[in-house]
Amino acid sequence: MRYEAPQTVEEAARLLHGAPAPARVLAGGTDLIVQMRSGVAEPALVVDIKRIAGTREIVAEDGGFRIGAAVPCAAMGEHAALCAAWPGIVEAANLIGSTQVQGRATIAGNLCNGSPAADSVPGLVAAGATARIAGPGGVRDCPVVDILAGPGRTTLAPDEFVVSLFLPARPPHAADAYLRFIPRTEMDIAVASAAVNVTLAGDGSVAKAQVALGAVAPTVRLVEAAGEALVGSRMDDGALDAMTVACRAACSPIDDKRGTVEFRIHVAGVLARRAALIAFNRAGGRT
C-alpha cells in the first residue's frame, strides 16, 4: 500500500486517476481504517485529503456554509453559526459514534461510505445540500441526494472525491431537526431515522418542507410527498398524519436483527412526525 498526502485538489485528483485500483480517499478514517484492518478494503493507494487547503475548514459562503470534506463532526458542534443555522445536521453529526470517533469522522465520509443508516445524510438531503466533487476533469457540484446509489455505493466515479459540502443560505424562520431510533442511548447505528427541514411563511405557516428518511430503504430517501403534506399547515394533526402516511409509504426496509420491516416503517413515521414538530418550533412556529 502507498500513502500519499497531496497538498492540492488537482494533485489528489491526479493520484486517484492514475492509481492502480483500488484506491481510497482518507479523511477521518473511521470507516476506511476499520475496513482496512478487517480486510474488507485492501487499497493499493490511500490518498489523505487532510493536507489540502480548505478541507479542514467551515467557511461562510453566499449566506450558507461550506464544510470541508475533512472537517471532523466535533468541529461542527463547536461552530456557533453553523449550529444556529442547521441544528439538525449538527445534532446528526454529533450522534455518530463516540467522542473519539467524532474527533475524526466527517460528514463527507459519512456520505461516501454509502450506508443507508448514515446519521448525517438525511439532514443533508433535507437541506438540499450539494457536494463539490473533484475528478480528473476538474470540479463539479452535485446534489447530495444524487450521490446515493445503494448500500456501500455512491454515484462517484472511482477517480472522483468529495472536496466539500455546501449548505445553502437560510431564509429567516427556517430550521431543521434529526431523530433516530437506536435500542441504546449512544454508540449505535440507526434502526430508522428522519430529518425534517422547514421554512415558515410570514403568517407562521409552513412555506416549504423537506423530509428525508434513513435506514428504511437501500439509500437515504427524500420523501417529497411528506414535505408537501406539511406545506400551508401549522403542523396540525391532519397535516402531520398525512406526512406520516407519506413517510411510511416511502419505506422499503430490510428485516434484520436490528428491526423488523413493520417496526422500521412504523418508527420512521413516528420519528418524522416528532422531528417535524421540533424543526417547526425551532423555526419559531407556534401550533
Binding site: Y3, L26, G29, T30, I33, R37, D48, Q100, V101, R104
Partner: peptide, 10 residues
C-alpha cells in the same frame, strides 16, 4: 481519538 484508527503517517 482512537489511535487504532489513525495511520501513523497522518
Amino acid at each position: 481519538v482512537c489511535a487504532c484508527l489513525v495511520l501513523a503517517a497522518e
